[in-house]
Amino acid sequence: MNLFRLLGDLSHLASIFILLHKIQTTRSCRGISFKTQALYVTVFVARYLDLFYRYVSLYNSVMKLFFIASSVYILYLMKYKYRPTNDPSIDTFRIEYLLGPCVLLSLIFNYKFSVTEVLWSFSIFLESVAILPQLFMLQRTGEAETITTHYLAALGVYRALYIPNWIYRYITEDGVVDPIAVTAGLVQTGLYIDFFYVYFTKVLQGQKFELPA
């Protein structure tokens, strides 16, 4: 564990609390992509199956359980408690275009051709693109509530902090890297660049998040 990774994980935790806060205070999941949230549940369940056979640390196990539980809870809120505020007609990204390639990639690129390893690879590839339905929705509506942009920013910061974490590990662990995690992680961080541009130039200057028409 190093400071970059710890801050990254805390930023990931913060993003979830911001999202829960947004849904509960506005009593609405308007502007949140159900598809992206469902993909995150898929990612966490596929990856954290290792809770059953690998113990890393108490921190690691607690975080994994929290990510699974909170993502399922968010789906519940969107699908049941605040269902009327969820508008599927603007959440139109075709997720089969993400799932198909991720299945294929995980069958080709994995560290061992076993069920758990292929699922691990699949979860890494899927996480890297899981935000796309959300970004697509943002692009379509052209605007977002400020709190929703804080949620996305915290998620983006989490991914961005994993990059210095890998550089730090590369230096301190004798030039060792995890090629699947790093490649997918770089792609994932890249997806946030456009969003961050608008976030820093508008939202953090006190303006509303609006995309140019």
Binding site: R5, D9, H12, D50, R54, V56, S57, N60, M63, K64, F67, Y111, W120, Y162, R169, E173, D174, G175, V176, V177, D178, P179, A181
Partner: peptide, 10 residues
């Protein structure tokens, strides 16, 4: 120098 699998990461 080489590849490793970082299964300790979340």
């Amino acid at each position: 120098m080489g590849w490793d699998i970082w299964k300790d990461e979340l």
